[in-house]
Computed example of a mutant assay.
Amino acid sequence: MAGFVQIIEYRTSKPDEIRALGEDFRKTRVASDDGPRPVRLLACADRDNPGRYFSIVEFASYEEAMENSNREDTSEFAAKMMELTDGPATFYNLDVEDTLDYGGTGSSGA
């Protein structure tokens, strides 16, 4: 299998606070180098529906994603994030069947 992606759809009036929380979590996880972590995260704002956001989190495998989800620090992060959302989040769990690169370069940050 080519990997696993989890999409988290949520609404918030506090996107900057969620972004800062996520960056702190990422720095701590990378520094600890303990257990599986996401390969990549895309943080997206819905241009057509202000206040709606998506986190697209890529993992090497479903098993690594589930191991990550079961970690105490991940549960604590998720609870703090949900305190900053305007209602419950919706989770989509997707097996990656294929990827196509079209070339070009990506960008990090705004």
Score class of each variant (00 low, 15 high):
1 M>A: 11
1 M>L: 11
2 A>P: 08
2 A>M: 11
3 G>L: 05
4 F>N: 03
5 V>W: 12
5 V>S: 12
5 V>K: 08
5 V>I: 15
6 Q>I: 11
7 I>Q: 09
8 I>W: 07
9 E>Q: 14
10 Y>D: 00
10 Y>M: 00
10 Y>F: 12
10 Y>T: 01
11 R>N: 09
13 S>R: 11
15 P>L: 09
16 D>P: 15
17 E>V: 07
17 E>S: 14
18 I>Y: 01
18 I>C: 05
18 I>F: 02
19 R>N: 09
19 R>G: 05
19 R>P: 03
20 A>V: 10
20 A>F: 11
20 A>H: 13
21 L>Y: 13
21 L>S: 12
21 L>P: 10
22 G>N: 11
22 G>A: 12
22 G>T: 09
24 D>P: 06
24 D>F: 14
25 F>P: 02
25 F>C: 10
26 R>K: 15
26 R>T: 15
26 R>I: 14
27 K>A: 15
28 T>H: 14
28 T>K: 15
28 T>A: 14
28 T>M: 15
30 V>N: 15
31 A>N: 14
31 A>G: 12
31 A>P: 09
32 S>N: 11
32 S>Y: 07
34 D>N: 15
34 D>G: 13
35 G>H: 10
36 P>F: 03
36 P>S: 09
37 R>G: 10
37 R>E: 07
43 A>E: 01
45 A>T: 01
45 A>E: 03
46 D>Y: 00
47 R>Q: 05
47 R>S: 03
48 D>P: 02
51 G>F: 09
52 R>H: 07
53 Y>C: 01
53 Y>R: 01
53 Y>I: 00
53 Y>D: 00
55 S>P: 03
56 I>V: 13
56 I>T: 07
56 I>C: 07
58 E>F: 10
58 E>C: 05
58 E>S: 07
58 E>I: 05
59 F>V: 06
60 A>N: 04
60 A>M: 03
61 S>V: 02
61 S>D: 02
61 S>N: 03
62 Y>W: 09
63 E>I: 08
64 E>L: 11
64 E>R: 14
65 A>D: 03
66 M>Y: 06
67 E>C: 06
67 E>Q: 11
68 N>F: 13
69 S>N: 06
69 S>K: 04
70 N>C: 05
71 R>A: 08
72 E>K: 08
76 E>M: 13
77 F>L: 09
77 F>P: 01
77 F>R: 03
78 A>W: 05
78 A>G: 09
79 A>Q: 09
80 K>F: 00
82 M>W: 04
83 E>I: 00
84 L>Y: 13
85 T>L: 14
85 T>E: 13
86 D>N: 06
86 D>Y: 00
86 D>K: 03
86 D>A: 02
87 G>N: 01
87 G>F: 02
88 P>W: 00
88 P>T: 01
89 A>R: 00
89 A>M: 04
89 A>V: 06
90 T>K: 12
91 F>A: 02
91 F>Y: 06
92 Y>A: 01
92 Y>L: 02
93 N>F: 15
93 N>L: 14
95 D>W: 05
95 D>N: 11
99 T>L: 14
100 L>K: 06
100 L>F: 08
100 L>P: 01
101 D>Q: 12
101 D>H: 13
101 D>W: 10
101 D>N: 12
103 G>W: 13
103 G>F: 13
104 G>Q: 15
105 T>H: 15
105 T>P: 07
105 T>E: 15
106 G>R: 10
106 G>L: 12
109 G>H: 10
109 G>M: 08
109 G>Y: 07
109 G>T: 10
110 A>V: 06
